[in-house]
Design a protein around this nucleic acid. Structure first.
Lengths: 118, 118
DNA sequence: GGTAGAACCTACCAAAAGGTAAGGGCAAGA
DNA sequence: TCTTGCCCTTACCTTTTGGTAGGTTCTACC
């Protein structure tokens, strides 16, 4: 499924930030280097397995940098790369759009509550 | 899986444009009202079933407007709603980012080609 | 000694998304 | 009459994704 070969750049971006948790991870990491367990706590509701998967993918894409402090017990943190920062910048308007339209969208996605009771 | 209840607006946006084909559909429809069969041809590689699914979802979200010309054989076209237009505007930077970084990203996603031949 | 917490990994499972193949009603064209 | 194109629908299957439950290595704390 190569999504990097179309006329629309959105597919490229989606290939990078697609997935249930990646945008959220980026959101919580943009404030600075963040430890694994801290990300887990901030994101909330994500399993360790999935968090690691997403983190690894982001690192592979050169969006995040993984820093292992080689000590025991382990200390690892993740930070945006310069490339990752260009991505979160490009993401900003969409993020604002989402924030501005959250209620609208969630209302459209769950009209069933009223409909069912009617 | 309600993704409209997080502090990050990206989740809202992803709830709307998530899916393999939605961004591409939006891309091909933004030039004006487009017929079903025309979208299918432009997008290329999508099955009718899936195209309809995505189109329906987009219509439900009020991003697209479906216009049925009630004639036989059927004529139907899809156009951006004003709401949909605000979305594609918010999407533009990300689209540019993707276009600018397509090669970079696809190189990262498929480094195996060179590695295998080496 | 037992437990907790750090940052993972491994199997196994379930749900969602996507894809294939077929059909359907109708009209225009061969 | 037969086919083609239009805009879908349905049933079924595969792939992808996400989730659960366990384990690991090590230290620090009670």
């Amino acid at each position: 499924m190569d999504r990097t070969n179309t006329p629309c750049g959105l597919d490229v971006a989606l290939a990078v930030i697609g997935g249930k948790w990646k945008p959220l991870i980026l959101f919580h990491v943009q404030s600075g280097p963040t430890r694994f367990s801290e990300i887990r706590r901030r994101v909330g509701g994500i399993s360790e397995k999935v968090l690691i998967q997403q983190l690894r993918a982001l690192v592979e894409m050169n969006v995040l940098l993984r820093r292992d402090h080689h000590c025991v017990p382990p200390v690892v943190d993740y930070a945006l790369t310069p490339f990752g920062e260009t991505l979160v910048e490009a993401l900003a308007p969409l993020c604002e759009w989402g924030t501005a339209n959250r209620e609208l969208v969630s209302a459209m996605r769950a009209p069933s509550a009223k409909e069912r009771s009617a």
